[in-house]
Design a protein around this nucleic acid. Structure first.
Length: 177
DNA sequence: AGGAAGATCTACT
DNA sequence: GTAGATCTTCCTA
């Protein structure tokens, strides 16, 4: 198993979002390691993205502009959403994790808020480094599965720009609409 | 200090 | 399908 390194995240958000599909996210809780396959992602491209909080001033925008691989935890309503900063430093790009398929545990993760609950992810991961973290990291799977990557519009956003920035694999865990 | 908006979820009709 | 719950962040004063 090889952890994803910084170079992986230094590419465009759209590319990273597609490439993250099928990867394994690992969360260490006490002595157990929860593993789940990433099945749904969304890309946010820069501070001009009207749907992104990077279009506002503040800490989130600064975080999105920081080093690739930085974890960004964003709170809405009652939930935490987890993102990974992508692109080179200075670019406000990020990828949102929308759904996972649990491999060695049971949970509902068909939605951005539920997946953070299942993995016990909260604000304490904000600004941490996904490529160098003891409690949370991403691995390449042993075998590269064949799967079809589907695209659609982003979900839950009113300001939609007819761009297809949501990517997913066929799975019952994918949030569907 | 207060208000508004938001990348959501659940429950009920 | 729609309403409501309820939290974090940013903006204004």
């Amino acid at each position: 198993m090889k952890k994803l390194n910084k170079e992986f995240f230094e590419r465009k958000a759209e590319i990273v979002a597609k490439d993250l599909l099928g990867k394994i996210i690992c969360r260490k809780i006490k002595k157990k390691i929860l593993k789940a396959k990433i099945v749904e992602t969304e890309a946010y491209y820069d501070e001009k993205d009207p749907a992104s909080r990077a279009c506002k001033n503040g800490d989130l925008r600064e975080t999105m502009k920081s080093e690739a691989g930085t974890i960004l935890v964003y709170g809405v309503h009652n939930n935490w959403l987890i993102n990974f900063v992508t692109g080179k430093k200075g670019k406000a790009e990020a990828v949102l994790l929308r759904a996972l398929e649990p491999l060695n545990f049971k949970a509902k993760t068909n939605g951005p808020g539920l997946l953070t609950k299942a993995l016990l992810i909260d604000k304490k991961f904000h600004k941490k480094d996904i490529t160098n973290n003891k409690e949370l990291w991403i691995e390449n799977p042993f075998i590269k599965e064949k799967f079809e990557i589907k695209e659609s519009k982003r979900i839950g956003i009113k300001k939609d720009l007819n761009r297809k920035l949501r990517f997913y694999i066929q799975s019952k865990f994918v949030s569907k609409k």
